[in-house]
Design a binder for these strands. Structure first.
Length: 440
RNA sequence: GGAGAGGUGGCAGAGUGGUCGAAUGUACCUGACUCGAAAUCAGGCGUAGCGUAUUCCGUUACCGAGGGUUCGAAUCCCUCCCUCUCCGCCA
């Protein structure tokens, strides 16, 4: 969420910044609502002040045994008038709030201006493409050949966009997650956390998935008939959402908290499944395990002092890159342009791993600085040197997407006979196994 | 699932319709005393808004959440959420 003060003070400037990411801010509408809000709020508060003062008088008079009928008559109409004003104010404020929550973050000034992914800037390439003297197979072919990848059974059990791993591949998948967690905790100073996979609407709102991207989420209720968990509070029927990324539960750890200065930076890592409806991506990446309704990810999250957040972003990016380097995978780092960064982000780097079968780089990690955008929604603050609460900065990045890393390992390390060399870094997690061969 | 207790400021803990944004203790900050410290004494010490107003001024809201009763609600009523204790069930 953007700072409403910033919008009031420099509406044109904010609109210009949002325009760089292709978002048209309806300044007329904002100004209209702000004007209305100001009038109504001032009016409502005047009435409240009057009521408070009069009520005090009544109490005072009564305690002295005086007759209060006169004063009572005076405020007889005040109640209705006040109620009306309060209702109106609530409506206007919620309209403003909705408008505000629908605004994306302003890109940092160092983000390259562009319209689409085509304008993203390649920062560096690391490693080299592997060369093969045989026709490369994709991970589906390799996995099925190894007898460890079974989409048909997954489809029977659940449906499209699910996968089922067996034997060495299932273990490799687990090994990858373990390896990533160990690297980040032992070498990068992150604290491992285990978190809920079902979260409430307030958490989704905090990190920016709600209210705008509800269709991307899986929503769960109780068994039939659907019960309501917080119907009285919000009128909503839903009770929980499945997390689309560990970013949601982990970042929300600091929602409504004031973190002591000495606790910053907070560096947390979590391995969780992620659930995405993939609404709107029908037909894309239908083959294989690139785009699934359920996938595992090791997520890095940091809460930092505002002065440190861009240094932290580079570090976090480096932590994610370390995994690829240790696995010997070729990748490139891309800085997203203003037209391609996500709704909540102020700056984002994507890491794209080389996939020989697709002859292209595919996103395997996305590392972002959200500045105060999420913190403002969450009221996540720290106590600054002056002792005052101040919004902190939040960052996160995949370190890495486990499923896609598995794909990359399979495709990049394949041999002519369809077996796969296990990267050395993973062998301790594979019981020393060096080559993954067919189960049969 | 059954029965009971409870959610108040950083923490502890009073307050059951009126000058309560909230006693008191404790922690913390400032000052006095002291060579210095401890102890003691005095003062201060929440958050989010609004008013062209970070600091001074005025004002509103906030005692788990939402709604209601009332001129007036931390206090009464309703709904919900959460925590704790006992029983049952359970990985």
């Amino acid at each position: 969420m953007l700072d409403i003060q910033a919008l009031r003070n420099d509406l044109a400037g904010m609109a210009a910044r949002l325009a760089t990411r292709g978002f048209v801010l309806d300044t007329a509408s904002f100004e209209k609502w702000e004007g209305i809000r100001k009038n109504i709020q001032t009016h409502a508060q005047e009435l409240q002040a009057k009521r408070n003062a009069t009520s005090k008088q009544i109490g005072f008079a009564k305690s002295k045994g005086e007759d209060v009928a006169g004063i009572m008559a005076e405020v007889a109409t005040l109640g209705d008038e006040l109620k009306q004003a309060e209702v109106l104010l609530a409506e206007v404020q919620s309209a403003l709030q909705n408008l505000l929550e629908g605004l994306p973050n302003t890109p940092n000034e160092n983000v390259p201006v562009g319209k689409s992914a085509a304008d993203n800037v390649e920062v560096r390439k690391v490693g080299a493409k592997p060369s093969f003297d045989f026709a490369v197979r994709d991970h589906v072919s390799l996995g099925e050949g190894l007898g460890g990848l079974d989409f048909e059974t997954a489809a029977k059990i659940s449906g499209a966009r699910f996968s089922l791993l067996k034997g060495g591949l299932a273990r490799l998948h687990r090994a990858l997650a373990q390896f990533m967690l160990d690297t980040h905790t032992d070498q990068h100073g992150y604290t491992e956390v285990y978190v809920p996979y079902l979260v409430n609407a307030a958490s989704m709102r905090g990190t920016g998935q709600l209210p705008k991207f509800e269709e991307d989420l899986f929503k769960v209720g109780f068994g039939s008939p659907v019960q309501t968990l917080d119907a009285a509070n919000t009128g909503q029927v839903a009770s929980f959402y499945l997390i689309p990324t560990a970013e949601v539960p982990v970042t929300n750890m600091v929602r409504d908290e004031i973190v002591p200065l000495e606790k910053l930076p907070m560096k947390l890592v979590a391995h969780t499944p992620c659930f995405r409806s993939e609404a709107g991506s029908a037909g894309r990446d239908t083959r294989g395990m690139i785009r699934q309704h359920q996938f595992d990810k090791v997520e890095l999250v940091q809460m930092v002092h505002p002065d440190e957040s861009y240094v932290a972003l580079e570090q976090l990016l480096g932590h994610a890159e370390t995994i690829l380097q240790k696995l010997g995978l070729h990748y490139r780092v891309v800085k997203l342009c203003t037209g391609d960064i996500g709704f909540s982000a102020a700056m984002t780097y994507d890491i794209e791993v080389w996939l020989p079968a697709q002859d292209t780089y595919r996103e395997i990690s996305s590392c972002s600085n959200f500045e105060t955008f999420q913190a403002r929604r969450m009221q996540a603050r720290f106590r600054n040197a002056q002792g005052k609460p101040e919004l902190l900065h939040t960052l996160n990045g995949s370190g890495l997407a486990v499923g896609r890393t598995l794909v990359a390992v399979l495709e990049n390390n394949q041999l002519a006979d369809g077996s796969v060399v296990i990267p050395e870094a993973l062998r301790p997690y594979m019981g020393g196994l060096e080559v993954l061969r067919s189960l049969e």
